[in-house]
Design a binder for these strands. Structure first.
Lengths: 248, 248
DNA sequence: TCCTCGGGTTTGGGATACCAAAGCGGTACG
DNA sequence: CGTACCGCTTTGGTATCCCAAACCCGAGGA
């Protein structure tokens, strides 16, 4: 489970954005949210400020908008994540206790059973959604936990931030049982390397996993861009940041 | 120069904290700041929220306080920075244009002359302060620029954040001309490696520089801890984060 | 002397009123 | 028919006001 405790309002708005109730690119007005969320502007404003720091919301001229899905941003995030998460893996290999690693492995076993679960046949769609959500959360939690095992709070925080920014794209992707199984295999391999205390292998596996995930996500989004746009999602590809000298 | 443009209030408060006008550990009240800064509580609150995200201010029970200097945090920051900045160096070696690197080198030459500058003899102390500040800013800017040359905005942001959190300790350190020259040498070596497009060397130099700086800073703070505490600075050493399973 | 309990004061959180400016639409003129 | 201008409406920014709870301090009792 995620950390939960911000203000209730922050959590509600955050969840709404992450679950795509507010569409990427959608414009928000403080006064609109006031009635949507049935709260006063003051707490809404603080929630927006925090969400801005999370990268889920941004200022658009005057006013606010839900951060659009940006292919360029996803590339940069993956690159960033690759560096940090590899370092996390190395540190975790050196620092995590055996019991921590066992717990990490266990968490994978739990979620691994979701697909073989015989759900309520009356609501196949709802079940699919539930499994999707469980899979998404499992992936998220795995990486957050791994980062935590680095013992470095800054690394853990930055991974949490990256995962947050990436989370919405997971909802868009079709998550087949095969892809879930694949992700789980890679996660298990990472844990195994950590348990062998093989830092190099763990780092390499993390990098491979990260890179593969990013590639699949980007490929999917490029393919489905048109369709998703039709559903109202702003999917953009901003100008890649060039190294420039002016204005540090 | 730093980015400058938040709200004027945010900038003022941020500067005041970074230049130790508000002492590490000091308690802040919104209503106190209201009169200090001659502004209303609303903008003060938004400034505090942003500063909280910057790690310069934290909630203390109810209420706010200036983040104390925490040796454990400095260690974690350095470890984090080492990973990110090494990655930045590799990327910069691959991506930065020759002219960008030349500009980076130039910025070092400019500031290198500060120590040989014949200042106004009437105010030696003010001159020392000015040189210190110039040196601090130079170091800060160098690393920020380097990170920027990675072409990855997330890396650049995280380095900016790390440098911000570390900035106050620089003010506490005695910066001798020798130490400034030493830092400059290492910066020059990094640029040289980048210009040779030698990613491995650049990364290694960055790591060495980062590690050395951290060690010197920590050694200094440990030594002077008592004295600095006497001046009212909260210098603490919090419990290192242990990898724990509960509450991701 | 130390601890406990209580009440007054301080403080952050939330709600609301006001303001200036940006955005939008309609109208009138070319 | 197109365009430019003007005024109204919307919206974020700011200033206060109110409230509940946390905090502080002192008095009283063990």
């Amino acid at each position: 489970m995620a950390s939960t405790v911000g203000t209730p309002l922050y959590d509600r708005l955050r969840t709404a954005i992450l679950s795509l109730d507010y569409v990427p690119g959608e414009k928000l007005t403080e006064r609109g949210l006031e009635s949507d969320l049935d709260a006063s502007r003051t707490p809404i404003r603080t929630a927006l400020l925090r969400l801005e720091a999370d990268g889920l919301v941004r200022r658009e001229g005057r006013g606010w908008s839900v951060t659009p899905i940006d292919l360029t941003e996803i590339r940069a995030l993956s690159e960033y994540r690759e560096a940090v998460e590899a370092a996390c893996a190395r540190l975790a290999a050196a620092r995590a206790s055996d019991s921590d690693l066992a717990a990490l492995a266990d968490s994978l076993n739990e979620t691994g059973n979701a697909d073989t679960w015989s759900g309520d046949p009356t609501s196949a769609h709802a079940t699919d959604l539930a499994i999707s959500e469980a899979g998404i959360r499992a992936g998220n939690d795995f990486h957050a936990l791994l980062a935590q095992l680095s013992g470095n709070p800054f690394m853990a925080d930055s991974i949490r931030g990256v995962m947050t920014r990436l989370l919405r794209t997971r909802w868009l992707e079709v998550r087949t049982p095969e892809s879930r199984a694949h992700a789980r295999e890679e996660h298990l391999a990472i844990v195994a390397a950590l348990q062998r205390r093989d830092a190099d292998a763990a780092a390499a596996l993390v990098v491979a996993h990260t890179r593969g995930t990013a590639e699949r996500t980007l490929a999917f989004l490029s393919d489905e861009r048109r369709r998703l746009r039709g559903r109202g999602f702003a999917i953009i590809e901003s100008e890649p940041a060039r190294a420039h000298l002016d204005a540090v």
